[in-house]
Design a binder for these strands. Sequence first.
DNA 1: CTCGCTTGTTGGCGGCTTGTCAATAGAGCC
DNA 2: GGCTCTATTGACAAGCCGCCAACAAGCGAG
Lengths: 209, 209
Amino acid sequence: MSTEPRWRRLEPDERRAQILACARRLFGERHYDAVSTTELARESGVARGLINHYFGTKRELYLEVVRELMFIPEFAVEQLAHGTIEQRTAASIDRFLTVVERNRTMWLATLGTGGGFGRDPDVEQIMQEADEIAADRMLQTVGLADTTEGRAELRAMILSFSGMAKAATREWMIRGSLTRDQVQTLLSTVLATIITRVHGQMFGDALLH
Amino acid sequence: MSTEPRWRRLEPDERRAQILACARRLFGERHYDAVSTTELARESGVARGLINHYFGTKRELYLEVVRELMFIPEFAVEQLAHGTIEQRTAASIDRFLTVVERNRTMWLATLGTGGGFGRDPDVEQIMQEADEIAADRMLQTVGLADTTEGRAELRAMILSFSGMAKAATREWMIRGSLTRDQVQTLLSTVLATIITRVHGQMFGDALLH
DNA sequence: CTCGCTTGTTGGCGGCTTGTCAATAGAGCC
DNA sequence: GGCTCTATTGACAAGCCGCCAACAAGCGAG
């Protein structure tokens, strides 16, 4: 009789990726404790114990999924260093929205609740790191990466701004209460305002041109 | 010998509130599945089964906590209908920050991560409802409650704005990267910009005075 | 071709979790 | 005191998770 193996032996990376993909799907459609490791294993076509072997804990697997989702959309950073502040912010926002539009599914997944009760320090930290990377990228894109005066404050305000960017894209893509053009106008106007008026008012406006 | 009762019989509302308070505390300091109903019951000084009796499910108890946290800070809505738009937004933001500062703990708990993977439709919906109430309240406070033209869009933009408000208060209260005054300047300037420039540009600016 | 080694993978055990439900016992009322 | 109502308990069954010893896929050496 044919002795076909009962299971295939995969490279760790491969198996890991396979489980991770499955976890991404399940955690994407239901919340944490409505997904059991038993189901996770069954869907992955794998023994339950293997999940612990690769990720230690259901929770760690979950965090891995979050981490993966947050850091993926690293769109090309391109210097748009010419033009007025208004032009630069407009171009920057346009680029941002295009990327968001293109990675729609992924982006919606990372959006989640939009400021939740989560109260999960680990998730919180992952988000924060991702946000900071995004903020620095934004500073760079607008061509203010090497601002010295009030740099920390500017960065903090960009971080705040990104809270609005998330909420606005949600209005656009999920609720449909704003069009893309309206979001474009809203975000670029506000970003320009933050840089010129708010930051300018606080620290003088040497950085405007 | 003295026959003191082994447990006191309380009014349903009272017992409910007691458990809820305890749940608020525990869910506040640890994430969902790190809190067991056993612990919840022990801390509440109550049998485990009673939790199910009152809330049905651990998860429903959790959602109840979220709901309570989101809707509590209903600060007095006071018409600030005089002054320029700038003055009104400034006053409105000042009021907002004062309330936040006063209910610091509560607010931080509701803040959470600021746009998470949560992926919990129930929590999501609760947040959304709370946000909409807050947005309407904001419209009212600034004295634009009865705007007719582009009302839906204005509301959507206020909702987006509240994403920034949350992020900014986080920068201020948790990370300390902005002072309260800076947040005040940032938020009121941006809010005024949204109303006058952005909304004004889209729909004409009949509503400015 | 076979043996043997490495290590990816399994399967079941132990402890703990959660929802249910019949039984229990506060506390107000007559 | 006794009766009733129902808030509350406690134990039970099902299921979940982390652990770990045993198993076997696949590869290289002889």
